[in-house]
Design a protein around this nucleic acid. Structure first.
Lengths: 187, 187, 187, 187
DNA sequence: TATGAATGAGCGTTCATTCAT
DNA sequence: CATGAATGAACGCTCATTCAT
């Protein structure tokens, strides 16, 4: 019985992974209007299994979004670690992070949703808390170095990231970065 | 015959107004996914009447968006006229226009859609062409006066207006304006 | 007042004609599923005027069909007159009439409906009564001459005409005539 | 798993049968313009279930028609087998087949549609190919025996079957057979 | 009489969600 | 736990018919 339970649980874990992978790919390519049946089909499970793992479609989409948010968190944590270890300059890392989010969101509608959700429910997860902390350190370092705007805050970054023009062509995205840069740097 | 036609037409005009009002309110509050039946209900007419005035749902939503775009166009035209007549300073008028768009869009998702659509199909209507012209004059004046960014273009304004944080509370919207301002002004 | 009444009446007559003409053309080309609005548009009147002349769509379509039936009646009356005046042979005229109906119906979906309705409500109009009489005379002459099937009846012609393959290509229509001919002629 | 799948499948099969039965009855009585909702109601299922089994209304109607066509194919195959085994005479079997189609179509507008579709897309299914082959053998046998029209072809049968007077009362249908018979037999 | 805007039941179809197996 | 057939409300849209003017 214990064995069966373990087997079932591992099956369930694998299914959850498959579902998230399929949902990520489909939401990435076609947005959140993909149907649950289609996600189930791509995951190789039945629709019922989707609902076993995620009570509603919104829950599944949120989970996908949270996954992508996790990757952005990793990026900012690494940026902070480079700055902390004196391998990089905070203003450059911050701008690179914004660019990274923008470019990722441009090719991934789930990342876009993730970016928009960032400041919405503050620190709703461990991952986001770690990201917010790293971002805070990065900004503090830049302010201390006098390269970033003197009153810049984490919430400012959330705001800009949430409003970046993800559905525009590359040259437009670059122009947006150019326009926004002076607001982040020391005047 | 003329009288009867006029009477009918005035009724139809009133209904068209009611439909647009209902559509504006509902799209404002709940986005473009509101159903045609619901709009009809709020307008106090039958669905068929909606389709008599607007052949498809897209046409109705576009009409709402165009209405709001019209108000923004009026605002920028008036701003340019004040500057042209030496009653105002171009940089201040431009920033006030951006603020106005932001505040309008904040309370109206249709205005937001209008803002987003501005640069999409360049000069697709007379109104938009007039707005773009006024905006161009305003920017040229500010560049000539040395108060606006030296390479600022109309498309830059479209870009910022399209990405302003319309769903955020007032203090967040003001903060966004603060962050974006340096990118518009001369460094 | 008398003048006005006369004018109105003549207007009404002209409108009725226009409506029938438009309905005939449209039903001919696209079948009875054309909408009343479209017929009204082609007739240059408002939909309400259609309903003034024909209480329901079915009534209008029936009127078109009756019109076409009238032309077939004329054809058979003339055929009988030729036979009666010894200008033609009854069997040949009868077969020519069937061919004529078939060819007319092939290019006119209203004639097709007319053909199908022929025997349905026996002698529902003066015109049809005249047609049935002429057809009866024609058949009697052929039976007397020994060239037509000895027990041929008017209803037999109605039956064949109602089932002729109107939507088939010309060679198929000719083949059907060939197959059906022996059943009409003396064995 | 196999058991569960089988249980579900048997339910689904029963529902599919119910849907086809309901569709057959309704299409039989009122033609293909019956609505999907009504078919669903008569089948005792929800509309969604119809669409689970048949992606579009056309697919459902086609399935009904194909079912009926299948029965006609069986009839002609059996007729040919009787002739081939010297248990029957080809001309008699052919005429009996035509009568059978006519009688079947008279009580079922779906059969009528099936009959009309027969020659339309030649051999679009295995069943129809088998039917056409059997019909061809039957005709060849009759021509060889000198009892059928010397140039009779399968397409001639399709043509007559497609134009038989299915909506007429029994005596009219019998009369049509009488009129058509000479065209099929040797003169 | 003529007008044509308004009506609203009805259509085919979709899809998030449930639940018997 | 997994299955997937079943559900049914909801959608955008059509069109024969009505009726105030």
């Amino acid at each position: 019985m214990g064995e069966q339970a373990r087997a079932r649980r591992s099956d369930a874990v694998r299914n959850r992974g498959r579902i998230l992978t399929a949902a990520r790919h489909l939401v990435t390519e076609r947005g959140p209007q993909v149907s649950m049946s289609e996600i189930a089909g791509h995951a190789g499970v039945a629709v019922g299994t989707l609902y076993q793992h995620f009570p509603t479609k919104a829950d599944l989409v949120s989970a996908v979004v949270a996954e992508q948010a996790g990757e952005l968190v990793d990026a900012v944590v690494q940026a902070w670690e480079r700055v902390r270890d004196d391998h990089a300059e905070p203003a450059a890392e911050l701008l690179a992070f914004v660019e990274r989010v923008l470019e990722a969101a441009a090719v991934d509608r789930a990342v876009k949703a993730a970016a928009r959700s960032l400041g919405a429910e503050p620190e709703f997860s461990d991952a986001e808390a770690r990201g917010a902390a790293a971002l805070g350190h990065l900004i503090d370092a830049g302010r201390a170095a006098g390269t970033l705007r003197h009153d810049l805050a984490v919430s400012d970054l959330y705001l800009l990231v949430a409003t970046c023009p993800t559905d525009q062509p590359p040259e437009v995205r670059r122009r947006w970065l150019t326009l926004v840069r002076p607001g982040l740097l020391r005047q």
